[in-house]
């Protein structure tokens, strides 16, 4: 269970996240939707400690992680797949994967497990990540995060720049991971329809605030809301 209480993050005079409270139950997929600049990415960056909040608390499995350094938060089982995918282009596919599990030592997932999910990665394992296509990079980032057997997976815009077929594949994979591994997923997306299609719950952010929080089917059917905040 990931609990966010009254979390507020400021960039100088700009309030990017404004008193956000959320509960993300274990094994659920929560879609966080919103337009550009709604504070979605900042919310994720605050959760993993890349940005310090001005106030509020984040609790992971009963432990307050609000002020911990990034490296410690990762060690508590929080995996963050950043926007723009964040593969390290200079390293090979294999090396990227190994890095993801290194903090776990012997308990890391074996790469074979990741290659089973993403056979494309195995074919390209000795190539530098700079040679991968956009879809393959997304697979590599997600696979790399899974190497550490995380409890919570934060995904920042996994659909960005991908063909619809690939988006559908990634989304169904995310759902499968939540169902089979009990992974808790916080999925940030601009692509509201595909995110809501697999989500257990939908949250809409606008100007850093939670403006709606409900069942994904109701949210997807609420044209007025989607139109107002997501530009549909």
């Amino acid at each position: 269970m990931l609990t966010i209480e009254e979390l507020t993050t400021d960039y100088g005079p700009v309030r990017a996240v404004d008193h956000v409270s959320l509960e993300v139950p274990d094994g659920s997929v929560t879609a966080v939707l919103g337009a550009n600049g709604a504070g979605k990415t900042t919310l994720l960056r605050t959760l993993t400690g890349l940005v310090r909040p001005s106030s509020g608390h984040v609790t992971l499995a009963g432990r307050d992680i609000t002020r911990l350094p990034v490296e410690e938060i990762v060690r508590l089982g929080m995996a963050h797949v950043p926007e723009g995918r964040g593969v390290i282009a200079e390293l090979t596919v294999q090396e990227n994967l190994r890095l993801g599990g290194m903090w776990r030592g012997r308990d890391a997932a074996p790469p074979a497990e990741i290659y089973e999910l993403f056979p494309r990665l195995e074919e390209r394992r000795t190539q530098p990540a700079s040679r991968l296509s956009g879809g393959e990079r997304q697979m590599l980032s997600i696979g790399r995060a899974l190497m550490g057997r995380p409890r919570v997976l934060l995904l920042d815009e996994p659909s960005l720049g991908l063909a619809p077929v690939l988006v559908a594949q990634i989304m169904s994979l995310v759902r499968k991971l939540a169902d089979t591994l009990g992974l808790t997923v916080l999925l940030v997306e601009q692509n509201a329809r595909s995110a809501l299609s697999i989500a257990s719950r939908g949250v809409v952010l606008n100007l850093g605030r939670v403006v709606a929080e409900q069942d994904p089917h109701k949210l997807a059917a609420d044209d007025r809301l989607l139109h107002a905040y997501l530009g549909f």
């Binding site: 890349l50 990034v70 950043p82 964040g86 390290i88 090396e95 993801g100 903090w103 550490g148």
Partner: peptide
């Protein structure tokens, strides 16, 4: 490997637990 990751992409390296 961790040193190279830290040099190439410090922020991503931190997200992967590299000190």
């Amino acid at each position: 490997l961790r040193m190279r990751a830290a040099a190439f992409a410090p922020e991503v390296a931190r997200l992967l637990g590299v000190r």
